[in-house]
Amino acid sequence: LQAFIKTLTGKTFTVEMEPSDTIENLKAKIQDKEGIPPDQQRLIFAGKQLEDGRTLSDYNIQKESTLHLVL
């Protein structure tokens, strides 16, 4: 599935991932794409901060969901 990552500066980019991917995997993909170390990334979806060990499906993240990236 493709999801949108929106930063506080208003920049939006897309990442490809599977519902079974962990938040940790997602942070690694963001690092590959944007060069931001995972330990500096905080991802917010539906008002909740996402925990590394959980999966996208745990948070009911669907295709074309928008996640907010806070540094």
Rank of each mutant, 00 (worst) to 15 (best):
Q31G: 07
R54L: 11
N25M: 15
Q49L: 14
E16K: 08
G35P: 02
I36P: 04
T7A: 05
S65L: 09
T55R: 11
V70L: 13
K63R: 11
Y59A: 03
A28F: 12
F4P: 02
R54C: 09
D39N: 12
S57I: 07
L8I: 12
M17D: 01
E16W: 14
F13W: 05
D52A: 06
L69H: 00
V70N: 05
Q62L: 12
G35M: 04
Q62M: 12
P19Q: 10
M17F: 15
G10R: 03
T14Y: 11
K6I: 15
D52G: 06
G10T: 03
D32M: 13
K33R: 12
K6C: 11
I5G: 02
A3G: 04
K27M: 03
V70Y: 13
A28R: 15
L56A: 03
T22M: 06
K6P: 02
S20L: 09
L69T: 00
I23L: 05
Q2L: 15
L8F: 14
R54D: 06
V15K: 00
Q49A: 11
G47A: 03
T14M: 13
S57Y: 08
K63S: 15
D21N: 05
D32C: 07
E51Q: 10
Q31F: 15
L56I: 12
K6L: 12
E18I: 11
L56G: 02
Q62H: 12
I30N: 00
E24F: 14
M17H: 03
Q62R: 09
E16D: 10
T12F: 09
E34P: 00
T7W: 06
V15D: 00
L69Y: 01
I61W: 07
A46F: 09
T22S: 07
N25V: 12
Q2Y: 13
D32H: 10
L8M: 14
N25T: 14
E34S: 14
M17L: 13
Q31Y: 15
A28W: 12
E51M: 06
Q2E: 09
T55S: 09
S57E: 11
A3I: 15
T22C: 03
T12E: 08
Q40A: 07
N25Q: 14
D58S: 14
E64Q: 10
S57P: 03
D39I: 08
G35Y: 02
I36D: 02
E16H: 10
L67M: 08
S57K: 12
T14H: 07
R42N: 11
E18L: 14
T14C: 08
M17N: 02
L56R: 00
D21E: 09
G47T: 03
G35S: 04
I30D: 00
P19V: 11
E34A: 13
R42D: 06
R42A: 07
Q31R: 13
L26R: 02
I61K: 05
Q41R: 00
A3E: 03
A3Q: 05
I5C: 05
E51V: 06
F4G: 03
K6W: 09
T7V: 07
Q41Y: 13
D21W: 11
Q2M: 14
